[in-house]
């Protein structure tokens, strides 16, 4: 874990990077609504092995860190004002940008709650190079401010997020921005989470990961 201070509050992130390499682009990995879990740390390590400095923040760090009790984590996360989350996300992005082992190019990938945050960061950070959302709620405002290329990995059967991401993707297209929306046949929300067997879809998760990595390699 590496720590940094944002607006007087302590932020911390799990950082993984390949051994011995020179400077690499950074990818911020944003957790689901249960905080920085062992699963998300695993995802960060997978990203590091692809050739990135992976920075997985604990968005509950200012609240004392992700608690062991998953329900408490969810409750705490929902209680943090949106403005505060947005400011902390921007601080994480800047931390990744200035990391000693990073080139200065930053991308973001988030899952579920974090997928929504990844898209919000694309709106808030004009220097962001690439944003990937796995089944997150998409923003309605500020889409015109997005400079990052956007990749959207969504489940076939996830009506709430489909309803949110379709107009978002259409708006990107209309504004001439770079946005690619993929739906994965036979999947439900959270299909990438291999730590929860019910909805994990190995083939779709594998394909989405390949696309995500290729997207970061191209855009960062």
């Amino acid at each position: 874990m590496e720590s940094f201070v944002v607006q007087g509050a302590q932020m911390s992130a799990y950082v993984a990077r390949p051994k011995g390499s020179g400077k690499l682009p950074a990818v911020v990995v944003i957790h689901e609504n249960r905080g920085l879990t062992p699963h998300i740390q695993d995802v960060a390590r997978r990203m590091a092995l692809e050739g990135f400095v992976a920075v997985a923040p604990d968005m509950l760090a200012p609240q004392g860190g992700t608690p062991k009790d998953r329900d408490l984590a969810r409750k705490k996360l929902y209680s943090v004002p949106k403005k505060e989350i947005a400011a902390n996300m921007l601080a994480v992005s800047n931390f990744a940008r200035g990391h000693a082992h990073a080139t200065g190019k930053v991308g973001v990938v988030g899952f579920c709650w974090g997928g929504g945050q990844a898209l919000n960061l694309a709106v808030a950070d004009p220097k962001l190079g690439a944003a990937v959302s796995y089944y997150g709620n998409a923003p309605k405002k500020g889409i015109d401010k997005i400079n990052a290329a956007v990749l959207m990995n969504y489940a076939e059967k996830d009506p709430k997020r489909t309803k949110s991401v379709k107009p978002f993707a259409a708006a990107l297209k209309k504004m001439g921005k770079s946005g690619t929306l993929h739906f994965y046949p036979g999947t439900k929300h959270a299909f990438n989470n291999d730590a929860r067997p019910a909805r994990y879809h190995k083939a779709a998760a594998g394909l989405a990961w390949k696309r995500t990595v290729a997207f970061f390699k191209k855009n960062l």
Binding site: P18, K19, P38, R45, L49, R196, A198
Partner: peptide, 21 residues
């Protein structure tokens, strides 16, 4: 229940001690 939410003891795809990291 464990099928829905996992047990918390799932094996990592890349272990925390992986020597490539």
């Amino acid at each position: 229940l464990p099928w829905l939410e996992g047990t918390g003891a799932e094996a990592a795809m890349v272990s925390p001690g992986d020597n490539r990291l």
